[in-house]
């Protein structure tokens, strides 16, 4: 489903964020992306939803080569990808339900469909009772769950999570992980960048480690490693 071939990313200031990375990820996999801060995890993730283009190499998702993607095709590519952000990226002037619905509204889904599907997603993350709350009235974990609901409301084939448990306490973090696990069971590919050693070690999933922009490890049922 995802093929990165000899991908390098060098920023205009000369920083080498990624060096010659080759990764294959199949449909329905659950992959952890680990490594010290600044190793290039976020850059890798940004390549997947085409916020950045690689300097060299190919990025192919669902048989679409993102390097050759035209600017006006980018939005359509993103509609197949749900992204969970560490800083949530919720709109403060919208309610929980409206935030979730937003992802459907912007792609022109009919009003009834928007209502039905955003309710479904909100229920799935367990926030049905708070659907009318604004994000500042929610705890960190609840905000992260809104973000998850927004990422999955589209039924994306690929779910990308950039440190989704970074700001959360132990129990809440596991709540999010349970959500991701169940979404993964429904067939969605999940890629998660994380610093959460305990989670990675317990989940027993594929682990890809990046250090200074290079891939140093790729193991099935891997462990976190020696990073801070």
């Amino acid at each position: 489903m995802i093929q990165l071939t000899n991908v390098s990313k060098i920023y205009p200031n000369g920083a080498r964020a990624l060096v010659d990375i080759t990764i294959n990820i199949g449909k329905g996999e659950f992959v952890f992306l680990v490594g010290p801060s600044g190793a290039g995890k976020s850059t890798l993730i940004r390549l997947l939803y085409r916020e950045e283009a690689p300097t060299r190499g190919q990025v192919v998702i669902n048989n679409k080569n993102l390097v050759r993607l035209k600017d006006r095709e980018v939005p359509y590519h993103r509609r197949n990808i749900g992204v969970i952000f560490q800083d949530f990226k919720l709109l403060p002037n919208k309610t929980v339900l409206e935030n979730v619905a937003f992802a459907l509204e912007v792609i022109g889904v009919s009003r009834r469909e928007v209502q039905r599907r955003s309710r479904e997603a909100t229920e799935m993350v367990g926030l049905a009772e708070k659907e009318k709350s604004f994000s500042h009235q929610l705890s960190g974990g609840e905000q992260q769950r809104v973000c998850v609901a927004r990422a999955i409301v589209n039924n994306p084939a690929l779910l990308i999570a950039d440190e989704p448990t970074g700001n959360l306490d132990h129990d809440t973090a596991w709540g999010i992980m349970d959500l991701l696990k169940s979404i993964n069971k429904l067939g969605t590919t999940v890629i998660m960048a994380t610093h959460a050693r305990e989670i990675v070690n317990k989940m027993q999933k594929r682990v890809i480690a990046i250090e200074s922009g290079r891939m140093v490890r790729d193991e099935e049922k891997g462990v976190y490693g020696n990073y801070a």
Binding site: Y49, E51, D71, R72, P75, Y76, H77, R78, R79, V83, K89, L91, F102, A103, V106, I107, G108, R150, N154
Partner: peptide
Amino acid sequence: RREIQIMKLVGASNSF
């Protein structure tokens, strides 16, 4: 700009 960024990330087209 925050709203616009989020719109772009969830796949809104430029014309939208």
